[in-house]
Write a protein that binds this DNA or RNA. Structure first.
Lengths: 275, 275
DNA sequence: CTAATAGTGTCTATTAGACAGTATGTT
DNA sequence: AACATACTGTCTAATAGACACTATTAG
């Protein structure tokens, strides 16, 4: 550092000038994922479930009127993990929500205003917990994803707006099959949020196959059919009933409640059983 | 934001004052892992391998004379992923090294000088690539880890200094078995680096079981015995030969070279085969 | 009765774990 | 010859995939 030598940490700190280092604005973006239901006209059929993400509409520049992930600046006197909790509380009104850090994005041109570093978090919730508590610039978007060898095509739909984007995948590292995602096309999402959403979905998909994360999106009581539907949505493929039940059986607890009224055999309600 | 309304993004940006947001120093810490060998006095035996990490000795306050991970500040005009590449090049002289972002730490009191956010990266290298290129404040430390239900006990040894620390594990989240790590005891490592090292080791251990990361620490040619040793060190358990060879067989390619001179049957040399 | 889901039994294929054996170079 | 590792065959256990079947309700 500078030429002077110090004899103790106290002495050093007293003399220390923090301004000599570059400082950057640090923000956090939160992916709030949930499952939404769409009821069928056929009384016999189960409700159609969708994977969905909460977006907010920007009311000022940059990206005015575009949709983006909820987020905000990290305060100088705030632990980084406290920022997403604060924002989540502010956005949904609830505070005990599954939260996980995902990735820190820091491209030089992420934000036209200034240099910003952004740490993304993923939150999973059961939508039933927050009936009519949403702010009016916020909205749930159903996610539809299609994929081929080189691209991921995503459509976000909240019933009014339809947002589409395309992500290009290029293999970045052979030993771990990691891909570099780049935005190939994007009409209506702000910043690099298409990247954040896509990586978050991938992460969740992976975690769903070796952990119990999925239960964070389930209500207290659920049928195995409903649970299977959610797994299928997140894993992106149909699962066979007997296999699914085999795998899940130690993770759930049977209750004496049943769900009736579906025009078919009633289904037993289960709860999540911790190990 | 402020009261004024703008008609275009250009207009908005011209008027924009970036100083109104908190700014933080952002750094990166790099875990450089490798495998070191310790030759046995018994000519017949294979060399004893250790998992090791590169540390540098701090030559000024704070934490003067303590060991820490190589790292540095992210520059305002530098992409966040470019910082670890720059530091790695500077520290080891090589540039094509396996690199992966791990986690962003941002506790308020991480650094006594000022508020710092730090993104950690993990790098894996084959030590043979950098014979006598190390700087003189840097040193490889062999890592020994022991674990019980509540704690992880780690010893770092470079032949001269022995550093010890203890990490306390507390279950943070039930559905994904995630633990919160806290430093319980730490005599000679700077900052929160015991946390970074421990989490990095965990991450590598997991990745080793479902990817080919391990090959990043191997030389071009290796025997299956050596490869198995490295897997065993990282996974933290003995593996059975036939099972290991079954799993690995599609990932490696036999060469016509053999390794002789070991006082036992010569071993065929293999190379990594990409899918 | 019928459509639609709930739930189970069982057979097969694949993968993982375990052990025992054979092979071969150096001193 | 003996030690230490290299390498393989095979049996068993556990897990995953597939299909077919029975059960039960609202309308």
């Amino acid at each position: 550092m500078d030429g002077k030598t110090y004899n103790s940490e106290e002495e050093f700190l007293k003399d220390y000038d923090p301004s000599k280092f570059d400082r950057l604005a640090v923000t956090t973006d939160i992916l709030i994922f949930s499952i939404s239901e769409e009821y069928e006209d056929n009384y016999r059929k189960l409700s159609n479930k969708h994977f969905s993400v909460l977006l907010v509409k920007r009311d000022n520049y940059p990206y005015k009127d575009k949709w983006c992930l909820p987020g905000g600046f990290i305060k100088v006197d705030e632990d980084i993990e406290d920022a997403p909790i604060r924002i989540l509380k502010n956005e949904t009104g609830i505070s005990d929500i599954y939260l996980e850090q995902l990735y820190t994005y820091g491209g030089v041109d992420r934000d036209p205003r200034m240099r910003v570093i952004s740490t993304s978090y993923m939150a999973l919730i059961d939508k039933n917990r927050l009936r009519d508590k949403l702010k009016d610039n916020a909205s749930w978007f159903n996610i539809t994803k299609e994929e081929d060898k080189n691209n991921i095509y995503v459509t976000l739909d909240n019933g009014t707006d339809i947002l589409k984007y395309t992500i290009k995948k290029t293999l970045k590292e052979k030993t771990t099959d990691r891909y570099k995602f780049t935005i190939e096309e994007n009409t209506s999402l702000a910043f690099d949020h298409p990247l954040v959403i896509t990586s978050g979905m991938e992460r969740l998909k992976n975690k769903a196959s070796y952990t119990d994360v999925v239960f964070n999106m389930m209500p207290k009581y659920f049928t195995l059919g409903e649970l299977q539907q959610v797994y299928e949505i997140i894993r992106g493929k149909k699962l066979l009933d007997p296999a699914f039940r085999r795998i899940i059986k130690d993770k759930v607890e049977k209750t004496d409640k049943v769900k009736t009224g579906g025009g078919h055999r009633p289904s037993v309600l289960f709860t999540y059983k911790e190990k």
